[in-house]
């Protein structure tokens, strides 16, 4: 499976112009961040990465890069297991 580009996914989910989100984008400062897009983010991660994420993992990730890093760690831990 081709690796999804996390920042592109963030652009799409939060209806940002393509190329807007970077690994330094602060999640909670995205203008369309809301409880609904929060739920959308959990759904997107489940769909693209097959990980049913606990909301706490997102809450403790400041930037898109932080969250992507955590996802990668979970994926490689899953592969190792």
């Amino acid at each position: 499976m081709a690796e999804p580009d996390f920042c592109e996914l963030i652009d799409e989910l939060f209806e940002l112009d393509p190329g807007t989100a970077t690994s330094l984008t602060v999640l909670k400062e995205i203008p369309s961040w809301s409880s609904l897009t929060f739920v959308g983010l959990i759904a997107m991660i489940d769909e693209e990465y097959g990980i049913a994420l606990s909301p706490g993992v997102i809450m403790s990730s400041e930037t898109a890069g932080d969250l992507e890093q955590k996802l990668r760690e979970m994926l490689s831990a899953g592969e190792a297991a």
Binding site: A52, P55, I58
Partner: peptide, 12 residues
């Protein structure tokens, strides 16, 4: 209701 927690639970 914490909607995100409900959603995460449902997915699991």
């Amino acid at each position: 209701m914490n909607g995100a927690e409900v959603f995460s639970f449902a997915l699991q």
